[in-house]
């Protein structure tokens, strides 16, 4: 098997700047409940995501849904950045 190195910009949400847009590539948290809740609110892999605010809480927009999350949960959402503005 041969591997080719792709350079995909892939980052936990809490490392991104406000107004960054991207696509969710993974949702990982040791607490399965949190994953369940995020899934139920429409946060799935492949969905477009915008980081609207970082303080006092993270505010994200996934599809047409706006969700407030704390830093720990933001850390569990991995994003491939598509645009920066």
């Amino acid at each position: 098997m041969f591997t080719q190195s792709f350079s995909v910009y892939y980052s936990p949400l809490n490392f991104l700047a406000t107004k960054t847009q991207g696509v969710i590539t993974a949702i990982r948290n040791k607490d399965e409940q949190i994953v369940k809740k995020l899934l139920a609110m429409g946060v799935h892999t492949g969905m477009p995501i915008t980081l609207e605010q970082r303080f006092p809480a993270f505010v994200i927009r996934v599809g047409r849904t706006r969700i407030a999350i704390d830093k720990d949960i933001a850390n569990s959402i991995k994003v491939r950045v598509t645009t920066r503005s």
């Binding site: 139920a40 609110m41 429409g42 599809g63 047409r64 849904t65």
Partner: peptide, 9 residues
């Protein structure tokens, strides 16, 4: 209706 896709779950 605005969030049909995710609510269909």
């Amino acid at each position: 209706a605005k969030h049909l896709g995710r609510m269909l779950n």
